[in-house]
């Protein structure tokens, strides 16, 4: 590299901006950081509370005043994952004599219960995973194709179509649950994986199209056009140039779609029973069977959080630019 005239001899290693040094700016930054920390704590309290409850014993979970310090136990997880039976006093004594009891059995015994089988929760969690993943895949797949078409081609009635796509989100889902329930019954889609995948894909698609169109609009057409004259078909140009460039948008759309499908409650409650039931509606159904098992519910909620957290962290590099939406640096 050639040294340009007037350039400093020594590399500049610290900021020379006058507005970034001195007492006042530093104080301001300190205050901002402090506020951010306070906001973060407020937002984290429910999550932390849930995490704590998940590891509390049943009496600890409901104790008043709430216990901040307690002896952690996996009792909640055991009751989440098992079906149990209440034992009589004699049975408890009999059980205590047995030496073939597992760790989980002994935990249940403390509450006077015997494990009689696995609960359905792992199945519900698996359903959630299948339905969310597949519907997210289709939302993003069709979304990116539709968004590309809207962004690049002259589509007749483009604005009307885009508005129509958006309008599918305008009714609160609950309003349409009954008609959809009746339709699903008639079409034999009730309590099927396919039914929920279809519904979530349709729901997320409008969102995906709009979000991705914004990202694709930001990619200069010249890139593809250069590829077209360089000897590639439009599909090849799309795959080699547009797709890598829209990874940010795809990541953002994936996370949002996945979170929606994963958290969705109302439709899942109405449209599934045993076969295709997802995790969220399965949790409240634990309320009422032999008292509220708060520890089990918290454990289930915690389990529900994990995939979303993993996905978000996995895509965080792309997301960091994605959440700023249109603010991608040009050139």
């Amino acid at each position: 590299m050639q040294q340009s005239p007037g350039a400093p001899r020594q590399p500049i290693t610290s900021s020379t901006r006058v507005d970034q040094v001195g007492f006042r700016p530093q104080l301001m930054r300190g205050i901002k950081a402090g506020l951010a920390v306070v906001a973060m704590i407020i937002m984290l309290i429910p999550a932390v509370w849930m995490g704590m409850t998940a590891f509390k014993s049943r009496p600890d979970a409901v104790s008043v005043p709430p216990k901040v310090f307690f002896e952690p136990t996996v009792e909640g997880f055991v009751s989440l994952l098992t079906k149990r039976r209440q034992l009589t006093g004699e049975e408890i004594d009999a059980y205590k004599q047995r030496i073939d009891l597992s760790f989980a059995d002994r935990l249940a015994l403390k509450r006077g219960q015997a494990i009689i089988g696995q609960s359905d929760f792992p199945k519900f969690l698996r359903n959630s995973l299948i339905i969310s993943t597949v519907s997210t895949f289709f939302s993003v797949f069709f979304g990116v194709l539709a968004a590309y078409a809207f962004s690049r081609f002259k589509v007749r009635g483009e604005n009307d179509l885009l508005f129509f796509i958006l309008s599918t989100r305008m009714l609160p889902p609950v309003v349409v649950t009954i008609p959809i329930f009746l339709m699903y019954r008639a079409l034999n889609l009730y309590d099927t994986h396919f039914g929920l995948i279809l519904l979530y894909t349709a729901f997320n698609l409008s969102f995906a199209v709009w979000l991705l169109k914004g990202f694709i609009d930001e990619i200069p057409r010249e890139y593809e056009e250069a590829a077209l004259v360089d000897g590639y078909t439009r599909l090849q140009a799309f795959r080699k140039i547009v797709l890598p460039q829209s990874m940010t948008g795809i990541a953002a759309t994936t996370v949002f779609s996945f979170i929606f499908a994963w958290n969705e409650y109302a439709f899942a409650l109405m449209l599934t029973a045993d076969v295709a039931r997802t995790a969220p509606p399965s949790l409240p159904s634990r309320i009422g069977t032999g008292g509220v098992e708060w520890a089990a519910i918290a454990a289930g909620s915690l389990a529900c959080l994990v995939p979303v957290i993993l996905l978000t962290f996995g895509l965080r590099q792309h997301l960091l630019r994605g959440v700023t939406f249109g603010a991608i640096r040009k050139g």
Binding site: P220, E222, Y223, E225, A226, A227, L228, V229, D230, G231, Y232, T233, I241, P244, Q245, G331
Partner: peptide
């Protein structure tokens, strides 16, 4: 179609493929 016309186009700007090296850019066609 443009690919089969075998023309080379130099655009006013934005024409280099981002996230590719100079070598990859020139290898692309």
């Amino acid at each position: 179609p443009p690919a089969d016309r075998d023309t080379a186009f130099v655009f006013q700007q934005y024409s280099l493929y981002p996230n590719m090296t100079v070598y990859e850019n020139m290898a692309f066609p």
